[in-house]
């Protein structure tokens, strides 16, 4: 564990806490894409299948449970909690996210490190996470203006994988044989998809107004 990895995990944790804070306290999910949240729930469900079979550390297991619990509870809130569900703009959140799932599954069946059930699903979760933010970014463009909490959520979510890239660079130079092209390319694509958002986020941040 290096500082970049820890910073990445803390940034990721902060992103889910910001979103849970927004939904739980102000009982609103305005501007949040349910489809992105559903994709993330699938990402964690397929990535952490080994949570009970391979123990890495208490920290690792704890964080997996946090990400699983938060992503599924956010989906539950947005789908079934009547006060929160009312603030979900279903008309705008129309990105065909199921069209992302199948290509990622096919790609995982074609390109993976090992052809085992767990490894293919784990690889699938990497590809899916890389594109999971798309419904949210499309919703953001449609709703134009978003509240600060949602902007902070997207910023932190985009930043965490960027910190992971620094972690991979660090590990590449400090650990022999640490080469994982699939993880690296998926992580790079994922971070690059946020480039446009980061650009506007910093512009507004400098301007001191909300994200438009």
């Amino acid at each position: 564990m290096n500082i970049f990895r820890l910073a990445g995990d803390m940034t990721h944790l902060a992103s889910v806490l910001v979103l849970l804070l927004k939904i739980h306290t102000i009982k609103s999910c305005a501007g949040v894409s349910l489809r992105t949240q559903e994709l993330y729930a699938i990402v964690f469900a397929t990535r952490y299948l080994d949570i009970f079979t391979s123990f890495v550390s208490v920290y690792n297991t704890f964080m997996k449970l946090v990400f699983l619990g938060s992503s599924f509870s956010i989906v539950w809130y947005m789908r079934y909690h009547k006060a929160v569900h009312r603030t979900y703009d279903r008309e705008q959140d129309t990105f065909r996210h199921w069209f992302l799932v199948l290509p990622c599954l096919v790609l995982a069946l074609l390109i993976h490190e090992k052809f085992t059930f767990l490894e293919v699903l784990w690889t699938f979760s990497l590809y899916l996470e890389a594109v999971a933010i798309l419904p949210q970014l499309v919703l953001l463009q449609r709703t134009r203006n978003i509240d600060n909490l949602t902007g902070q959520y997207i910023f932190l979510l985009g930043g965490y994988r960027g910190l992971y890239i620094l972690n991979w660079i660090y590990r590449y130079f400090t650990e022999p044989h640490f080469v994982h092209w699939i993880t690296w390319i998926a992580g790079l694509v994922q971070t690059l998809l946020y480039a446009d958002f980061f650009y506007y986020y910093f512009l507004r941040f400098i301007g001191g107004r909300g994200v438009e």
Partner: peptide, 10 residues
């Protein structure tokens, strides 16, 4: 090598 086997990242 075995390091790559254990998925030690999230």
């Amino acid at each position: 090598d075995d390091a790559s086997d254990t998925k030690d990242e999230l």
